[in-house]
Design a protein around this nucleic acid. Structure first.
Lengths: 332, 332
DNA sequence: GTGAAAGCGCTAACAC
DNA sequence: GTGTTAGCGCTTTCAC
């Protein structure tokens, strides 16, 4: 691998001049610059980013640590981050923590030891790792979760309002015993969505029946099991608001297994829009999250934070959008 | 940030000794080692990976460059890679090329300048970038595509056999005018799947009707448009084999739009299993790919290549599995 | 406008 | 078993 010295020798200039050309500094004689460029091509020179990073003691990479690479939520989020990163001159590396605190810790270590320029993270519940990044002075933006008491830039979606819209829509369609399957107790998004569900019941003057609320694990099987137990409640719920996309798969699967009809016997609204929502029969009504915007906003907050580490932290909350389809069609 | 010299001073040893302790070398007096560890904790010392990488002139990161982060195919593939990487002591960073050759080029540049220890890549069609990695001596494993004439370790799934199984299954179920929607012309996986479709028609003694073959873009809209035009063919096809998961969404959507019934008027089999296959009514018959295994195998080939750069290249081809569900139910 | 030279933080000979 | 020392390849003062 050719080094900057090889190029300098061949172009008969000093390494400093090569460096200036490589980095597009002015103050280089055009003739010299041309010679340098020719030498770089001849030698197939490629700057060694590791050496540069060491010398500058900073890198141009961002780590995006997400909790589940399989969740469509993160797909367009990553695109939003990438689009901003690219114009700002950063590369994005994705790290998949799989909702596992230990794995998350490893990636945080990597971000720290690799001197990443910034980190965007959707932390696992009660994660101690965000604090470690903050302590080390690494610019951080948290997405999708609010860190209790942490002084950190954050991008959220309005989970409560989204859940309230969804549940309110079911109530308006005539459903009266509306159940809720939400995520694990104590998890930020799960609690907010549950709160929105409750608020909507109040709005509609419907009674709260604790027997109609389930906490599951945000996974397919959890949704399936929760729906199984809800269908055994007497009197049976006539609608269900499911608090994320994967649990919706499980819940709807269970509803079909039991031969219960949608939307006549059971209205369904899911949180998170998914590409296949229109493929279900009836098509699935969902609360769509502005995932691309979440990514963009997080990336913009990160560039701002990198530019000015002292600026006050801010939290951006983005609205959801209810997409009404057949699964919540008016109760006959 | 504390350096190795700070730790050495505090522990009253040399930097070399600290380095030995950090890297778990033997040959260090336990008492000294203890002092060093204490000093590291006191100073909250964290080794600077950039400096280490420069000195060793290698890193412990792998780049996994995938063509579409939104495709479920890559989800468990990444898990397979990560599981192997972790035990081998590597970190995995994901790069999303979005099937864009320019973006892929950027990530290849990053892998090169950042001195990545290895690269696993699903290249865009006709990508020149794999050759650049190879030329630079970077260990590379190609997945999902066969690079014409390139001397590179490769992990594939048996696209042709999978398509043949799918189409043969439709024929066996009694469908007679079986259409095919495959990917872009010249794309490796698209061509192999088309070849498998044709082989199955031969197996079943069915005629080849060129009017029943479509090339689309492996996206939802492409599948939708292709199905739209297939439904206008007279006589209409009575079944369709769709060459990837996203196009299947579009194609099935179109079939429903037209009020055509599945599986009675139109049998459907898709390539790539998806989590929501069982949610469709009827549930979707698919050709499942062993995605996790693809990831594991690629990672294992990569470690082998890193260990022994001179070993002959190998290609691993993994079998698919036909998952029969309702959408291909016997034609009445 | 250009070059000489000093490190960034670490590891690995080599000497003791 | 431990310390000294010389770089890894680059950027950046500081002279000129």
């Amino acid at each position: 691998m050719a080094t900057i010295y090889d190029v300098a020798r061949r172009a008969e200039v000093s390494p400093a001049t090569v460096s200036r050309v490589v980095n597009g500094r002015a103050n280089v004689d055009p003739a010299l610059a041309e010679r340098v460029r020719a030498a770089m091509v001849d030698l197939n020179y490629r700057p060694n980013a590791v050496a540069r990073n060491l010398r500058r003691s900073r890198t141009s990479m961002w780590a995006v640590i997400i909790s589940d690479i399989g969740n469509p939520f993160f797909t367009s989020l990553v695109r939003g981050v990438e689009d901003v990163a690219q114009t700002a001159g950063y590369s994005v590396v994705l790290c998949n923590s799989d909702n596992d605190e230990a794995k998350e810790g490893q990636y945080v270590n990597a971000a720290l030891t690799e001197q990443m320029a910034g980190v965007i993270i959707s932390p696992t519940a009660g994660s101690p790792h965000v604090a470690r990044l903050l302590d080390a002075g690494v610019p951080v933006v948290v997405i999708d979760r609010q860190m209790a008491g942490a002084d950190v830039d954050t991008v959220l979606v309005d989970n409560e309002q989204g859940a309230r819209d969804a549940t309110g829509h079911l109530a308006a369609a005539g459903y009266r015993r509306i159940a809720c399957i939400t995520g694990p107790r104590g998890l930020f998004t799960a609690e907010r969505r549950l709160a929105g569900y409750r608020a909507a019941l109040d709005d509609a003057g419907l009674a709260h029946d604790p027997a109609l609320v389930r906490h599951a694990d945000f996974g397919v099987d959890g949704g399936h099991a929760a729906m199984h137990s809800l269908l055994a409640v007497d009197p049976r719920p006539d609608a269900v608001f499911v608090g994320n996309n994967l649990m919706t798969i499980g819940a709807v699967g269970r509803i079909f297994d039991e031969g219960v009809t949608v939307p006549e016997e059971m209205g369904v609204v899911g949180f998170d829009d998914v590409p296949w929502a229109t493929l279900m029969r009836p098509a699935l009504t969902t609360v769509a999250q502005p995932t691309y915007s979440v990514g963009r906003n997080a990336a913009e907050l990160l560039t701002d934070r990198i530019t000015d580490p002292k600026r006050p932290v801010s939290t951006v909350t983005l609205p959801t959008e209810l997409r009404v389809r057949g699964s919540s069609g008016a109760k006959p």
